[in-house]
Design a protein around this nucleic acid. Structure first.
Lengths: 236, 236, 236, 236
DNA sequence: CATGAATGAGTATTCATTCAT
DNA sequence: GATGAATGAATACTCATTCAT
């Protein structure tokens, strides 16, 4: 009649194992369904635990997501690290980082979406370890720029942070339709073209190639025009 | 018995007016609170209608958001159009578009977030008129590149779509902390630096042909003269 | 296949009716099961509405309980009011209030428990309308004491608030086992004995002045005559 | 691999010590947070044991609360016992018990609340040792009344149990706002006034002071009126 | 004896959308 | 056309208690 406790077989495991089981399950579920569609109960089941157990190790659902994303970043950072050290030359290093970033997105589009759409927009993102990890991850691009500037390979007035934004912004936009599951992208091709653009943009100004009479005149004319516009705006 | 109707003003307004009232209210609310925090009841109240009325003109909450975003794009596109036509020179045109895009984000961060976070990631985004509008909006960058290629100002192997992604991606990343309400950004400075990077990245690897220089000098001189004339017009 | 909306028959009723339906159902359920065991879904079902509808009229479950209790107090206060006015003499008025209070508890032990155990201990109880109602309800005892003091029937150094606490405290303790569903109690017997104790405790320590006795005898005789007349009215 | 045990101090203590540690911790926690807000894990931590250990000595959380309350009662009873014996005279004995009860509440408001709100309302309260202890504790008032009746100091028709309810009920009501942490109360003043009321209520009826012609007539009139009301209720 | 990881039941609340009046 | 009352689905989290080690 009064069916009470079903079983109650306490399956004792080392915490590290539990945590990694849960995180693996969470990564799966989050990746498949996105954050809000993911159910704690689903994650628990796949991890072979009960819902309550998840809350022994993770503050809440969001914390779990955060930890999964952090783990992913740690993975990405460490995985490339050795290879990166071996690469020489500014272009090659830019290319390496861009290419591997594209590969990571191709490998884990679900996690990428989560970071772009759930975690990064969060008002508390900056307080997050993920923010720090991401900063470390993206800083490598800026570091290459800084080195190039120190070597005299790149112009002295370049902006490392702008380059970082260009690279990661471009990659993100380039992969959006893929992240929306609509198409594919070519990591190698995109990496090459992007590296070329960035590299060329960073080279010092040669005589005729830039900032020559032509470019100067263009800019000056532009400034004059903008000034004129402010004084006498075109009749709309 | 208990007369309770607050007001019985069956406000019969022309549909266009209703629609614009609703969209104005929706824009306000969406901008202030983001999509999911926005309440249809709130929008209805600010628009001076009841919930049901909104559904006469809009399929659902998402459709309303979409229409608001579309209107914003139409606004942005038309607003810049005239000015853009007047701008000459590749660098200036790149700069113009980048600068005004940054200004739009600064002016309407709420709408920007909505597009980035709600609308664009949607699986059905491509079926949307917003997608088309955004394509038109961003195509202008690619068009500048194409023109430059045709003019011989830019290298023949440049990728207009990559440039588009670099520009809009970089802008987005540069403004993220602002969109998270954490800081500010300098539209003019960022626009200049970004235009410089892109421009330099697009120049031919070889020197410019001499005759091109001369031909373009003519053009530029002409523009200078016209600009000067606008600044100091001959006394009529 | 995709069984969606079950029905969707919108049953439109005047708000007063909905509210009273819900409150009636809530009173039933709360009375039967106590606060925390009561389910909103249960209340909704008995009221013939859907859960959401309850939240149109009541902020939350607790608010609903509060409103039910308030209604009960209003009921109790108004029900006794007319009768009370007709009662003359300090002892009789004390007795009347005590007796009817005991009757209320006997009639609605569930609500009594709720007030004693859920509502009154609440840290915000004083901010509640229920607090005000209860104050008005219990003040009547203190008022009788005050009147008696003014009339010289009771000693000048009596404490109306202490009497109030004695009366309502004693009643509560006397009915505890009943409220715990363990036994019964005798309202009439308890009311008499309690009124006697309180009355005696309030009399002046000295003897009554002779003329007072005579004056009051007149009044009492008059009341006796009128009462008798009501019992055996002259045949019309 | 990963050695993780924080401490391995298998603290083997005599059971009595364990029990008193746990009860002390429980008393603290229950007092501070109330029953349902109290966590077994919190109690365990403060007692320097783990959760499981508590269950070696106590059936469950409620049992622990019960034992804490019982201990409190034993404490209260034994503490006053000697002093009480030394007090002579009915008024003085009433006053002594009332005053010390008020002091106990003032000293341990948290435990008082627990008894009033958690333990006493329980359906199984009567089966509890706490019930017996409380009966012994409160019986002392009734005993004083009985003695007084035997001595001829109090009227023969007094009700010891009613007096008990009046005293403990009055005290409870008088201290409610204090127990809700809203104000304070004056033990000495309240004890005196309450003792006075009770004492006076228990004295034999003197000639003119009570139950004289006047009071008799009042009562009779009241009874007649009530009878009349039942026969012919006033038109509402 | 002690440990402490694992268990698992249980529910109030929101709000976009509908459709009878 | 307008109204706005009614609908109803959907889910994270807590913590007393147990029992394998």
């Amino acid at each position: 009649m009064t069916q009470r406790k079903t079983k109650r077989t306490v399956n004792r495991l080392p915490p590290e194992r539990r945590i990694s089981d849960i995180m693996a399950a969470a990564r799966e579920v989050f990746t498949e369904k996105g954050y809000s569609e993911s159910l704690i109960s689903d994650i628990a089941e796949r991890a072979g635990v009960v819902e309550g157990t998840i809350y022994r190790f993770f503050t809440n659902k969001r914390d779990l997501l955060l930890r999964v994303a952090e783990e992913w970043y740690v993975e990405m950072i460490s995985k490339d690290a050795a290879g990166f050290e071996a690469v020489k030359g500014e272009w090659n290093r830019l290319h390496y980082l861009i290419y591997h970033h594209l590969l990571s997105i191709k490998r884990d589009p679900g996690l990428s979406r989560l970071v772009f759409l759930e975690l990064r927009p969060d008002p508390l993102y900056r307080e997050t370890r993920l923010f720090t990890l991401n900063r470390d991850y993206t800083r490598r691009i800026a570091d290459v720029v800084r080195e190039g500037m120190a070597n005299g390979v790149f112009r002295a007035d370049a902006s490392p942070s702008l380059v970082r934004d260009m690279v990661f912004g471009a990659v993100e936009h380039r992969t959006w339709s893929f992240l929306r599951s609509e198409g594919d992208f070519d990591p190698e091709g995109s990496a090459q073209a992007l590296a070329d653009m960035i590299y060329a943009g960073l080279l010092p100004h040669t005589e005729l190639a830039r900032d020559t009479v032509l470019a100067r005149l263009d800019k000056v004319a532009g400034r004059l025009e903008r000034a004129a516009e402010r004084l006498a705006p075109p009749i709309a």
